[in-house]
Write a protein that binds this DNA or RNA. Structure first.
Length: 270
DNA sequence: CGCACCCCCTGCCGGC
DNA sequence: TGCCGGCAGGGGGTGC
């Protein structure tokens, strides 16, 4: 589910609500996530004050007052929401964090593909995928071009490789390549610097527009306050196989690339 | 190295 | 109506 725009929306919403507050209690309801929840997570989080909350790629970073960082990755169906009070009726709650005077931060994850950990601030970079954040100034056409040069893979697979650029998943890779006018299976190393620049520009504009719409809700995604995103209404190709292209009317094509559904317009993308 | 294919897990939807 | 296969925003592992 959550790619960069969804994670950014969650962080923007929750950050002001938790900043400066202390974690009063921690309850792990399910330790079997993608990687098992560490046995000492409760101890690592409890009584810590939250000094900052940011995002890198698809990771949520919660900076704590003992120079550690609480890392969350939401996988496919993860949600991080703030509720006024604890309660039952939330079947897939995996982690409950009580914020002193600030409600309950609940990590809910139907499929348990997400992960939770606490790392020392000094080891943060090692804990994250090495790719530059898709919205950072470091993600340039030249960076993409240089990354593509040594590799023999398609531009879509490269764009989704978190070691190259962090934050782009399947929905937005499809959307970005439509806006850049580039076919997903084009060999990345055969793109010109100029074309790489167009892909990076499209990345910035698509992700920014998606954030402005609160992300895409396909089925499971909700923001930090349990609200839907609306960018799915602006999707041009994703999940539109067989439908007419919004720009030219040609039928949107569907194929599989690296096991992921891939959509493109045979006329608008070359 | 790249990639096709599998896994993890749960829910939903369409077809029969 | 009910069952079964296929598919889903992610990531990691294997073997060719």
């Amino acid at each position: 589910m959550p790619e960069l725009p969804e994670v950014e929306t969650i962080v923007r919403g929750l950050r002001p609500a938790v900043l400066g507050r202390r974690i009063a209690a921690v309850e792990v309801r399910e330790r079997r996530l993608r990687t098992p929840v560490p046995p000492d997570l409760e101890r690592q989080l409890c009584s810590r004050r939250i000094v900052d909350m940011t995002r890198h790629g698809k990771h949520i970073l919660v900076f704590l007052d003992d120079a550690t960082v609480w890392l969350l990755h939401l996988g496919m169906t993860g949600r991080l929401t703030l509720r006024s009070r604890n309660g039952s009726g939330h079947p897939h709650d995996r982690l409950i964090v009580e914020i002193e005077g600030g409600g309950i931060l609940a990590y809910n994850d139907i499929r348990r593909f997400g992960s939770v950990a606490v790392v020392a601030g000094a080891t943060l970079e090692a804990a994250l995928a090495p790719g530059v954040d898709a919205l950072s100034a470091a993600f340039t056409g030249d960076h993409l071009w240089q990354s593509a040069r040594a590799r023999r893979t398609s531009v879509k697979i490269l764009l989704m490789d978190q070691r190259v650029v962090a934050g782009v998943g399947n929905i937005y890779a499809n959307e970005i390549l439509f806006h850049a006018g580039v076919r997903p299976h084009r060999l990345a190393r055969r793109l010109s610097r100029r074309a790489c620049g167009r892909v990076v520009e499209a990345t910035r504009s698509v992700l920014t527009a998606a954030i402005a719409s609160g992300g895409s809700t396909i089925s499971d995604y909700r923001d930090g306050f349990d609200r839907f995103g609306w960018y799915q209404e602006q999707h041009t190709v994703y999940a539109r196989g067989g439908l007419p292209c919004r720009a030219c009317g040609a039928r949107i094509r569907v194929t599989t690339l690296a096991g992921r559904s891939t959509f493109w317009c045979p006329n608008c993308q070359r």
